[in-house]
């Protein structure tokens, strides 16, 4: 005898209900993700003295206002310097480390890899404290800018390493060998062949490292000095005493620039660089 699959009547409404639930929850959570960003941007355009949502009227006054705020301009400058220098240091180390991981073979390679990724393993706040602890031991609090460079370069190495590593692994060894067989020295080979091939990885890594350093509170909070407040740390302490919309304007400016960097990453290496951890 043969068996037939019978269509169960109760399944149809169930499927429809499932669809509604699925799309409903996706919409809800996407709104959740966007809410703080959107609310901040929208309220930054308020014309009122105090921050409200929805905003009363439309004006750019808070954007003009923040351009006159000393603490904003100086801390922005500090943050840009710290992020640039630490990203540069991390880039050099990450390129070297990626080279070792893709092209060299040795016994301690596993340990080397773990060491390079260790800043991801150790909780950021613990590293911040540990670094601060050493700074205090050696009485180096005065060199807070230098401390920020160094500490941020340490934690951003693994963030840069990932995209550079994968772009280097994707570069065929035979390209480098071809260049050498044609008479290029290892130095020339690196700059003419390898570097252009891994440039997208370096750009993506540098953007991730730069934004990490620029955004960081966890480590900077231990290391900033009175003259060297970074923007997020300064913003954090100013928000409490600022009921107007100037923090919203500053935050919106940061969001805007972050968005630009985000799209550069999307164009160069794609969003997959965020995928591994």
């Amino acid at each position: 005898m043969t068996y037939q699959v019978t269509e169960k009547l109760w399944e149809k409404p169930l499927i429809a209900l499932g669809r509604v639930f699925l799309w409903g929850s996706v919409c809800f959570w996407l709104v959740f993700v966007l809410a703080p960003v959107v609310v901040t941007i929208v309220s930054s355009f308020t014309a009122a003295e105090f921050l409200t949502f929805p905003p009363k009227g439309f004006s750019l006054r808070w954007y003009f206002r923040v351009m006159e705020l000393d603490w904003f301009l100086t801390s922005l400058q500090t943050s840009l310097i710290v992020a640039t220098v630490s990203t540069f240091i991390a880039t050099v180390f990450a390129v070297l480390a990626a080279r070792v991981l893709t092209r060299h073979r040795f016994r301690a390679k596993g340990a080397f890899e773990i060491l390079m990724l260790s800043p991801l393993i150790i909780p950021g706040v613990v590293f911040g404290f540990a670094f601060f602890n050493v700074v205090l031991q050696f009485r180096l609090e005065g060199l807070s800018l230098l401390n920020l460079f160094v500490a941020h370069s340490v934690v951003t190495i693994p963030l840069m390493l990932r995209p550079i590593w994968s772009s280097m692994a994707g570069t065929e060894l035979s390209l480098e060998e071809a260049a050498q067989s044609l008479g290029a020295t290892p130095w020339t080979t690196f700059w003419k062949i390898t570097f252009p091939m891994i440039l997208p990885g370096i750009v993506a890594g540098a953007i991730i490292a730069f934004t990490f350093s620029f955004n960081d509170i966890t480590i900077a909070i231990f290391l900033v000095g009175p003259e060297t407040q970074t923007l997020p740390v300064q913003l954090m302490s100013q928000i409490e005493y600022t009921p107007d919309a100037s923090p919203a304007a500053i935050t919106s400016i940061i969001i805007f620039f972050t968005l630009i960097l985000f799209f550069i990453i999307d164009r160069t290496v794609g969003m997959d660089v965020f995928a591994q951890k």
């Binding site: 065929e172 035979s174 390209l175 060998e177 071809a178 050498q180 067989s181 044609l182 008479g183 290029a184 020295t185 290892p186 080979t189």
Partner: peptide, 14 residues
């Protein structure tokens, strides 16, 4: 290798 003056053709062309 870069001083040997040899021409190499690779399997994947490189």
């Amino acid at each position: 290798p870069w001083l040997r003056d040899l021409g190499v053709v690779f399997q994947n062309y490189a």
